[in-house]
Design a protein around this nucleic acid. Structure first.
Lengths: 163, 163
DNA sequence: TATAATTAGGACCGATTAAGTCCTCTTTCA
DNA sequence: TGAAAGAGGACTTAATCGGTCCTAATTATA
């Protein structure tokens, strides 16, 4: 499934919450703020800390804060902190682990497709995510539209092709 | 895991194989051509047929062929035929199924991010995929690079941010 | 100095889902 | 009529995800 793990999703929500708050926040606090299961939030925060995206303080009045400005944290980094490198296909990352690698004509292209998707996510910063209806993200989506695009919203195309 | 299901991967390989062959091919034939497990190939082909991407003929000398030119089949269509709509997050597709939808500041942006990724995959046709080292896909990847890009390969950034 | 608050680091389990396998039915050609 | 081939679906196993819990280690404060 081309879907983020739920915990990754939680991660983006937590990071968004952190980006919007000035002070350090405890896991308990963040979980309730974002309406997330406490233990799941804890797990996610631990991973985010390990990846260096948030800074943690232990002890009473401890908690988490962004390790750097939200503009310097990309969605890619959040995703990869929580679920490892983005790899649409097995061969996008590990060479030689795919059994049909030799005979597969599509491999080199999957590398490139993977990179394109990764770049798309790379260009979305946490700061963008944290602003509802961010113009920058809308602009990104527009920029990714096909060059000779007719003006049909992607949604309707999807509906058409699935009929 | 932002990863395609293995069967979806098989699907792209099978479609690639079909795109490269002029005649109708049986499932057995295709599976051995692409070094895929026969039963898996069968399952994939059935789904592709149901989605209208390949045309099937039953009976002796039956088999599968592309339903239309490879240039008119996108990677998105293959993916969605095999695993349903592309939805990075729960809320990318179904509204109201996510419990924190109200409080979630990131939702509207995930819609757009999802669309951007989808557009990227939309622009890769089966014909592109079938040509090893397709220039069109490389060009796509290039076009997706950030506007004010420093010339650091995405790979090395990944390595840096994961250290 | 003891205690409460808080993160670190795992272990564990249940539920979901993917992948692979198998079976039966239908269609078509020789 | 039989063999080749697809259609449709059931079933099993393995993987993995999400949730929960437990035990340290750390820090402020009463």
């Amino acid at each position: 499934m081309l879907r983020l793990a739920k915990l990754t999703d939680y991660g983006t929500v937590i990071m968004t919450t952190l980006a919007q708050s000035k002070t350090r926040r405890s896991a308990t606090d963040l979980a309730s703020s974002a309406s997330l299961p406490l233990d799941a939030a804890r797990k996610v925060l631990k991973d985010l800390a390990r990846a260096g995206l948030v800074q943690s303080e232990r002890g009473a009045h401890g908690g988490y804060a962004l390790a750097r400005p939200a503009t310097d944290i990309s969605v890619t980094q959040i995703i990869e902190a929580l679920e490892g490198p983005i790899a649409l296909t097995e061969c996008s990352i590990h060479d030689h682990r795919c059994e049909i690698e030799q005979s597969c004509g599509a491999r080199s292209n999957w590398h490139l497709i993977n990179r394109a998707v990764r770049m798309a996510l790379d260009q979305v910063s946490l700061a963008d995510l944290a602003v509802p209806g961010s113009g920058r993200i809308a602009a990104l989506a527009r920029r990714f539209a096909p060059p000779h695009a007719v003006s049909i919203p992607a949604d309707s195309i999807q509906r058409m092709t699935q009929a």
